[in-house]
Design a protein around this nucleic acid. Structure first.
Lengths: 212, 212
DNA sequence: TAATGTGAAGCCTTTCACAGCA
DNA sequence: TGCTGTGAAAGGCTTCACATTA
């Protein structure tokens, strides 16, 4: 195997592979051939082999890939081989949904703090996490938290964003498209539900679209 | 202008352009040069000009692009020039957040129905929408709804998915990665919050990551 | 034999440079 | 002069074919 830069598109696919491999591993499977994995994920088998080939040789011709080895390697590449502590700001409906979402565990994430500015919510527990006063965000600096999830309303997004950057958060998952990421410091991934929905109609045959 | 197939990557960017242009239009701006729009969005100005050039000539050399014309054209391409009726299934925290999310309006979406199987929720209004009994999903067929949003727990995802396909929904935005899209009929966009978060650490310098 | 790993071809997207226009 | 629109070059990803290995 030679050293390659792993293409960004491949990195984007790794979490998908990881999820599938973890599930297979739970079912007790030890190996899986690429075409089989491809069927599960609805992609081509040569795509999968190519992707894996960028970071090593884990397969045995005639048998397939060693699931455990692959999981370990993908975790390492994605830096998911350590536990990441995350904070959530904005405990509304969306924030509560995120706090109670069970899917983070498999990737090694742990939400360790939640903030809101609503006195009715401060002090209450949501998903096992105590909601703290948003004006105390600066206490985060000592707590070695590297990730943040922003689920505040649009108006509060910029302020929250700036505050999080200030306390040294380096990765942000934001559900609000309403902030400028001016400082280039943290890596930001924005999820805009409406925008994702906006991509759908393009791919739908027009015949069924209701004219109004 | 010649006819081009619009590249998929360009289509993916159109909703982003649209959001920005709508905001500019609201502020009363009539035109904007590409480098200016590029600054807003953090992309290159030639990328924007290239993207726009695929579907027409809306710019005036020395002045910039006509915002209204551009909005109209992008809406047309994305098929957002008609009102799309959507249904939501699963009125938990996440579903409630989506129902009360104000961002859909600007793209011309209207959530017209919501379903759940929890008797405590059925009959209540969330975000102005009456929650109906999930076992009555089949009534959708007559209501000419083309889009659906799935916000049910993992276990119920497959069942919900199949039911929606059955009543003729052609586009699905799913927050649950737990269904096979076997039938190739509807276009499906899946949002997996944990997976998006899983992409973050890769881009973050390792130094700050808490070793555990 | 069955399946991996990879060089090379093909395809698509991004980037560039510049002609052309208001 | 300032900015658009676009052909062409550069770059990167996907697909393919096949040599290779357990």
């Amino acid at each position: 195997m030679k050293y390659h830069k792993i293409p960004d598109e491949t990195v984007q696919r790794l979490p998908i592979y990881l999820r599938c491999l973890l599930s297979l591993s739970e079912q007790g499977r030890k190996t899986i051939p690429s075409h089989n994995l491809a069927d599960f994920l609805g992609v081509n088998h040569w795509q999968i082999r190519k992707d894996f080939s960028y970071f090593g040789s884990f397969g045995t011709p005639g048998t397939g890939y060693n699931i455990e080895k692959l999981i370990k390697q993908i975790r390492k590449i994605l830096k998911l081989d350590v536990v990441h502590k995350a904070v959530l700001v904005g405990v509304g409906n969306l924030g509560s949904a995120v706090l109670t979402y069970p899917g983070f565990r498999i990737y090694g994430f742990k939400i360790v703090a939640a903030f809101d500015n609503d006195p009715k919510k401060i002090g209450r527990k949501v998903g096992g996490i105590m909601v703290e006063d948003a004006s105390n965000l600066q206490t985060l600096r000592k707590r070695k938290i590297d990730l943040a999830i922003i689920t505040v309303p649009c108006e509060a997004a910029q302020e929250t964003f700036d505050a999080l950057v200030k306390v040294g958060v380096t990765g942000i998952l934001s559900f609000s498209p309403c902030h400028k990421t001016g400082h280039k410091k943290p890596k930001v991934i924005t999820i805009d539900i409406a925008m994702d929905l906006a991509r759908l109609p393009y791919y739908i045959p027009t015949s069924r679209v209701a004219k109004v």
